[in-house]
Computed example of a mutant assay.
Amino acid sequence: MNVLAWLAAILCILMVLIGGKKGARSFVSLFLNFIVLLFTILFMLDPNADPMIVTLIACAVISCINLFYINEVNSKTITAFISTVITIVILLLFIDIVAEKAMIQGFGEEEIEELSIFSLYIGVDFVKIGASVIIMSTIGAITDVAISITSPMREIYNHNPLISRKDLFISGLSIGRDILGTNTNTLFFAFFGGYIGLLIWFKDLSYSFGEIINSKVFSAEIISIFCAGIGIALIIPIASWINSYFLVTQRDKKEASK
């Protein structure tokens, strides 16, 4: 416990020294997001609760914390929030279909021995839980991409207030293209890094390449990576269009009121 406290203290000091007030807010947001995740899990355990609805609400709350609490309420955070919610809704519907068709719900053969002493009749829809897990794993990256697009678009607009909606949208897409590659790779290593131990175990079990690829645990992880990448790719045009529409519409209203 002392090690955890020291690591938390070091992280807090570094975030405050480097990020100032925003760094301090970012550190507090970590604990707020953790609390939201705990409540999300508790609500999902309720047999009457729909995991998809719970996930959508949790993602909206997490987005509010990451965008409005850290970066305050302004035009770029509002458009980033709207873009995030739209992307999450599309991704939830898509992942729900993929999780059911790919049959990644439940547990693989490698996990049966550990779970043999527990009852599997817990009244939870594992298809929706699987979709929720993927969404909750990517919400941070999606909000990060959203604000990374809307913030520079706002700067472009401030430096060129007469820019057309089309040109502003194209600028947003151009920014997004630079972000896309690095963020998808970040997610890939974030997901796969936690499964290095599993791959070593597969090797000790003398699994062939085909057996590894067809393993439920491995395929579920790959599908999670692909779905997360799709979410990041989707948020780019959505955030670019919403932000360009919002900024230009706001400008036209100001000109009309003069």
Results as ranks from 00 to 15, higher is better:
residue 26 S to V: 01
residue 162 L to D: 11
residue 54 V to K: 11
residue 212 I to N: 01
residue 178 D to K: 09
residue 124 V to A: 12
residue 70 I to F: 07
residue 223 I to H: 04
residue 128 K to H: 11
residue 109 E to P: 01
residue 173 L to Q: 09
residue 34 F to S: 05
residue 14 L to M: 14
residue 48 N to H: 12
residue 229 G to F: 02
residue 194 G to S: 11
residue 102 A to K: 04
residue 172 G to C: 10
residue 153 M to N: 08
residue 41 I to Y: 12
residue 176 G to E: 07
residue 181 G to A: 10
residue 227 C to A: 15
residue 133 V to S: 14
residue 209 F to Y: 12
residue 241 W to N: 09
residue 28 V to L: 15
residue 235 I to M: 02
residue 122 I to F: 04
residue 160 N to R: 11
residue 152 P to V: 09
residue 181 G to F: 06
residue 223 I to C: 00
residue 130 G to M: 11
residue 218 F to P: 02
residue 247 L to F: 06
residue 33 N to W: 05
residue 211 E to C: 00
residue 79 T to S: 13
residue 53 I to A: 13
residue 109 E to R: 06
residue 252 D to S: 12
residue 251 R to T: 00
residue 171 S to T: 02
residue 192 F to Y: 09
residue 12 C to G: 05
residue 171 S to E: 08
residue 106 G to H: 03
residue 131 A to D: 01
residue 178 D to E: 14
residue 74 N to V: 04
residue 197 G to N: 07
residue 20 G to Q: 03
residue 13 I to S: 12
residue 103 M to A: 11
residue 83 S to W: 13
residue 108 G to K: 10
residue 234 L to Y: 03
residue 166 K to H: 13
residue 71 N to L: 03
residue 66 N to H: 03
residue 114 E to M: 10
residue 164 S to T: 14
residue 53 I to M: 15
residue 111 E to W: 06
residue 212 I to W: 01
residue 231 G to M: 10
residue 104 I to E: 00
residue 28 V to P: 00
residue 105 Q to N: 10
residue 139 I to R: 07
residue 61 V to W: 08
residue 27 F to S: 01
residue 222 I to P: 01
residue 244 S to A: 15
residue 17 L to Y: 10
residue 234 L to T: 02
residue 26 S to W: 07
residue 11 L to S: 14
residue 81 F to V: 08
residue 184 T to A: 05
residue 213 I to Q: 05
residue 61 V to R: 11
residue 177 R to S: 07
residue 69 Y to P: 06
residue 62 I to G: 10
residue 254 K to A: 12
residue 7 L to C: 08
residue 150 T to Q: 01
residue 76 K to N: 13
residue 200 I to E: 06
residue 258 K to A: 09
residue 35 I to D: 02
residue 220 A to M: 09
residue 178 D to T: 04
